[in-house]
Amino acid sequence: MALDADWAERWVRRTADAIADAKDELTELDRQIGDGDHGENMHRGFHAVVARLDDPAAQPGAADERTVGDVLKLVATTLMSTVGGASGPLYGTAYLRAAKVSGRPQIDPPAVVAVLEAALEGVSSRGKATVGEKTMVDAWQAAVDAAEAASGDGGSEVDVLRAAAEAADKAATGTIPMVATKGRASYLGERSAGHEDPGARSTALVLGAALAAALAGPESADPRGAA
């Protein structure tokens, strides 16, 4: 099955649901090593994204030729405007760069890899972070590496997204023993070890939602369509 703009919209809606469910968990992670607002900020941001998707006047792109990039661009600008913490410009830049490489109606497995690479590049350049510093870059980098391998092996869109989601989840867990050297948690130094990075966890949620949206297919996409 192809990944199109409707998939992108399902991805975003499922991300909003996943963030809403995990809001308290993310806030608790961030309370341990940050300033305790990650869950609330991400929830506010994705809530605003869904509100715009529900607004007929705010629809991304032309209705008949909507691209994946149109949807991701809407996510980018909305998150930057509404999140309020560092994750706003970080995720906003990730979606913005991803949108720039996905300006077409459908994306194939190599294009999925390109989207993830662009997002990683956005996060790491904006946050000036690299792998091993206990940030969301750890999850994004692992996702890109796994997605590249899956695509190189001739995997389908779902295979690529599954590889990315599983790698991001594992990498998020892998941030637990790390000592943070970037971001707010780095102020804690050694005391940041033993806690999972909230940005890496939310990245795993985002990519898990991308997989779920692809697996769900268009039928169960939009409950409003059936009403």
Binding site: T77, M80, G84, G85, A86, G88, P89, L90, G92, T93, L96, R126, G127, G183, R184
Partner: peptide, 14 residues
């Protein structure tokens, strides 16, 4: 701090 700088950079990129 952090997000002020990041948000300005994002505004200039947009």
């Amino acid at each position: 701090l952090g997000s002020s700088v990041l948000t300005v950079e994002a505004a200039l990129e947009l």
